[in-house]
Amino acid sequence: MDPEITLVTLGVDDLDESIRFYRDGLGFPMRDREDDSDVAFFTLDGTWLSLYPRNLLAEDAKVPDEETGFSGITLAHNVSERDEVNAVLEEAEAAGGRIVKPAQDVFWGGYSGYFADPDGHLWEVAYPDLTDE
């Protein structure tokens, strides 16, 4: 297997709301789709993001659709400047996301914060201060 992630699919409760959040709020480029389609694809640098109804994704994977709190997965977006962390968090909040952890200096030497999308998927926005390397 090649060490590459080509697609990340998020199970969502309200596809239209999630499309608005990612496409309209965060400006992710969405691929064309039929109005009645159950899936939305976004072309990102190096990978794709898809949104699919949570219950249908669970059914497809043959697992129960039960929310149990933290899923054990976060997505990350690294930025090249410290101030960009705050700007991206503000953008996510303005788009309807919820700030989970305000930006702050972190134990690994960088600066980061977390937001949750409308379905609670966690995104870390980080500036990895690499000046010492």
Score class of each variant (00 low, 15 high):
Tyr111Ala: 08
Leu49Tyr: 09
Pro29Glu: 15
Asp38Thr: 02
Glu84Asp: 15
Asp14Gly: 08
Thr74Trp: 09
Glu84Phe: 05
Thr47Ser: 14
Arg33Glu: 01
Val85Tyr: 02
Ala92Leu: 10
Ile19Phe: 10
Trp108Gln: 07
Asn78Phe: 02
Ser18Phe: 00
Asp117Asn: 12
Asp65Gln: 10
Tyr114Trp: 09
Gly109Leu: 03
Asp105Thr: 06
Val106Pro: 02
Ser71Thr: 14
Asp129Cys: 10
Pro128Gly: 11
Asp13Val: 03
Trp108Pro: 02
Asn78Ala: 11
Glu133His: 14
Ala76Met: 15
Ile19Asp: 09
Arg20Trp: 00
Ser71Ile: 04
Phe28Ala: 12
Glu93Lys: 15
Val88Lys: 09
Ala126Lys: 01
Leu26Thr: 07
Gly72Asp: 10
Thr6Pro: 00
Lys101Phe: 04
Val85Lys: 04
Ala116Met: 03
Thr47Glu: 03
Asp24Lys: 06
Ala126Met: 02
Pro64Gly: 06
Asp16Glu: 15
Arg20Ala: 14
Tyr52Ser: 01
Thr131Ala: 12
Ala58Ser: 11
Pro128Asn: 14
Leu57Gly: 07
Ala103Tyr: 05
Glu93Gly: 03
Thr131Asp: 09
Asn78Cys: 04
Asp38Phe: 00
Gly11Ser: 14
Thr9Asn: 15
Glu59Ile: 01
Pro102Leu: 06
Ala58His: 11
His121Arg: 04
Glu17Asn: 09
Pro3Lys: 15
Glu34Ala: 10
Ile99Cys: 11
Tyr52Ile: 02
Ala58Tyr: 00
Arg31Lys: 15
Trp48Cys: 10
Gly96Arg: 13
Ser37Pro: 01
Phe41Thr: 08
Asp132Tyr: 10
Ile73Ser: 13
